[in-house]
Amino acid sequence: MHLISRPYRMFLVFNSVVLAFLALLCLFPIINVLAVSFSSSSAADAGEVVLWPVGFTLKSYDFVLQGGEFNTAFLYSLLRVALGVPIGAVITMLIAYPLSKESHAFPQRTLYVWIFVFTMLFNGGLIPTFLIIKEVQLLNTIWALVLPGAVSVFNVLLMLNFFRGLPKELEDASLIDGASHFRTLWSVYLPISLPSLATILLFTLVGHWNSWFDGMIYMNHVDKYPLATYLQSILNLTAIPQTNLTLEQAILLKSVSSRTARAAQIFVAAFPILLVYPFLQKYFVKGLVIGSVKG
């Protein structure tokens, strides 16, 4: 039996208090602004809101979801995710599988690995990349947001390390049975790597949802901004832009302030992340640890 000494018990209490304080400190700004988004404009503008809405109302969300540019951007982000996530996953698997082979079985492996890893170490930079995207006619198309980041070397390394941990006999048995490498990847490797694949899908999804800079430089009209870019473009404005409002919005504008409307926009944009967060949390710790401090 463990005997818990008095000083140690006091330490445990102190420890819990500090940890609880840290967690609350992390949450506090988020809850405060969330409360603002549900508060009446007068209470919000007077700075009366702390952790609970004052003069509870859904008008700000009404205003945001009433259509217009915000909705267009939301849909464009969904399209981006719907294209970017599957493409990213397929590309990752197709690169990770060959590169997970041993050098004696696949002699060119090392060269290929370097070709991919080098892109992590050195890049052309903002302007040359922009000019290439322009040169290949991708400006103002959804592909400018999907293709340049489709190869994530980080995800490839994660998957590659997972494949390397699998017993070699799996591949041997499959190839001896006459299956092609494509068939082996699809029918043998894919089914057992679903947890790792889930990690990659979630990372990619969050990455696409959160990306804003590429939208800002590759798209020259608000119509084609993904949500993160649209939000970024209005964040620093002191007032909600009054152009392109729908009629309903123009009416609602009287009962929302730019502060409550912006708070609502922030949380509508954050909502999908919150939605996948429980799944994310289930996978990322394992995935991250496998990927970084393997062996």
Binding site: N123, P128, T129, P148
Partner: peptide
Amino acid sequence: IFNYAPIFG
């Protein structure tokens, strides 16, 4: 296309 071509750029 997206990583090496810009390096030449």
